[in-house]
Design a protein around this nucleic acid. Structure first.
Lengths: 194, 194
DNA sequence: ACCTGAACACCGTTCAAGT
DNA sequence: ACCTGAACACCGTTCAAGT
C-alpha cells in the first residue's frame, strides 16, 4: 500500500507501469485515479497532465497488457496458428489481475487494445477465408476468449477469498481449449476448397 | 427526467421496474442509486430497505431482463433449438439499453441471471452430449452472445450520438448468426453416433 | 513539461429515528 | 414495512497557479 515510485517527476510510461502494478495488487474496482496518484506520490490532478481522463489511462493499460505476448511465427497449419493466437491472448490477460475485464471495457469503448482482434484475424486469415468470414470469426474468437478469461479470473479471486477449488484446478485451460476447438472446427467446415 | 412513480410507498417490484425504465433511458453508467431514488421520489437510503446493495439490485434487474423471453417448445432438431435459444437471449438483451453489460456484470459476480446459461444448456443437451460437453458448449455460446450483443449495443449508442451507419444497419443480426453457426457446426462434429 | 492546492459535483452506504 | 435526514468516506475532473 506504500508508494511504489519515488522520483519526483514521472513520464507517461511511469504512470502506466505503476497503474499495472496497482491493478495487479488491488484489482480494477480499486484502481482509482486518486490511489494511482498516491502510489506515484503525486496529486490526483497531476495525472491529467499525462491522460485526458481515466478511460484513456485504461486504454494505455490495456494496450500494454495485450502487447506483452506477441504472436509466434506462422506455422504451416492455420488451425495451429489460431490456437496459438488464442492461447497467447489468454496468457496476456491472465498475467494481470482483472486483465480480461480491463481489456473488454477498453475494447467496448473503441479506445484501443485492437492488437488483440488484429492478431486473431491474422491467424484466421491463413485459412484462406474471405475478408468478412475472417473478420467475423476473429470477433467470435475474441468474444469467447474475453468472456472465458473474465469468468476464469472472477473464479480465481473467489477461490482466493474462500474455499479452494475441489481438485480440478486447471479446468480453466481445458474449458478454454474446448471452446477454441469448437470454433476452429466450425471454421474448418468453411475452408475454401479452391 | 421527472419522477416516474408517484405513489408514496413502493414494493421491491416497483423498484426493479423503475430501475429498468431508468436503465433504458439513461444507460448503465447513469443508473445510480441516487437517481433511482429520485425517480421513485424517495431518499437514497430508502432503497436499502429493498436491496442490501447496488449489486443485488442489478442482479434483480438482470433476472428480469433475461426472463422476458422464455424459450419456445423443443423442436425435433437440437440445432434449431440452440439457434432459437441464442436468438431469444440476444432479443432479451437488446430490449433494454446496456442490457448485455448489465447481465454480464451480474453473471461475472455469480449473483443471478442464471436462466441465460441454463436455457442454452437445455437446448444443447438435446443433441445428446455428455454433461461436461453440454456445459462447456453452453458456456462458449453464452460468452459469444454476451460479447456480441455488448459490442452491438455499444455501436448503437455510438451511432445515435454521431454518424449513421453506412447502409448496413442489420449487420448485427448476420454477424450474430455467423458466430452461432460456427459453434453449432463445431458441436455437430461431436454428436454422439450411438 | 510536470506538478500543487483547492474546489465542484457527484458517488454508495450506514444508521438512528420516525410512521 | 417502508421511509427520512444527516452523515461518512469516498469518486473523477477542472483550473488557476507555481517551477
Amino acid at each position: 500500500m506504500a508508494d511504489i515510485e519515488n522520483a519526483r517527476r514521472h513520464s507517461r510510461q511511469d504512470v502506466v507501469r505503476t497503474a499495472l502494478i496497482l491493478l495487479d495488487g488491488v484489482g480494477l474496482p480499486d484502481l482509482t485515479m486518486r490511489r494511482l496518484a498516491a502510489a506515484l506520490d503525486v496529486q490526483p490532478s497531476a495525472l491529467y497532465h499525462h491522460f485526458p481522463n481515466k478511460q484513456a489511462l485504461l486504454a494505455a493499460v490495456s494496450d500494454r497488457i495485450v502487447a506483452a505476448r506477441p504472436p509466434g511465427a506462422a506455422s504451416g497449419d492455420w488451425t495451429v496458428d489460431v490456437r496459438a493466437a488464442a492461447a497467447a491472448l489468454r496468457d496476456a490477460l491472465l498475467a494481470y489481475r482483472d486483465g480480461a475485464e480491463v481489456v473488454t471495457s477498453t475494447l467496448s469503448m473503441g479506445l484501443g487494445a485492437d492488437a488483440a482482434p488484429r492478431r486473431l484475424a491474422h491467424a484466421v486469415a491463413r485459412g484462406g477465408f474471405d475478408e468478412e468470414t475472417t473478420r467475423r470469426a476473429a470477433t467470435a474468437l475474441l468474444h469467447f476468449v474475453l468472456g472465458h478469461v473474465s469468468h476464469e479470473q472472477q473464479r480465481m479471486q473467489f477461490d482466493s477469498l474462500g474455499v479452494v477449488a475441489d481438485g480440478v484446478t486447471d479446468d480453466g485451460a481445458q474449458e478454454f481449449a474446448f471452446g477454441v476447438e469448437l470454433l476452429v472446427a466450425g471454421l474448418r467446415a468453411r475452408v475454401p476448397t479452391r
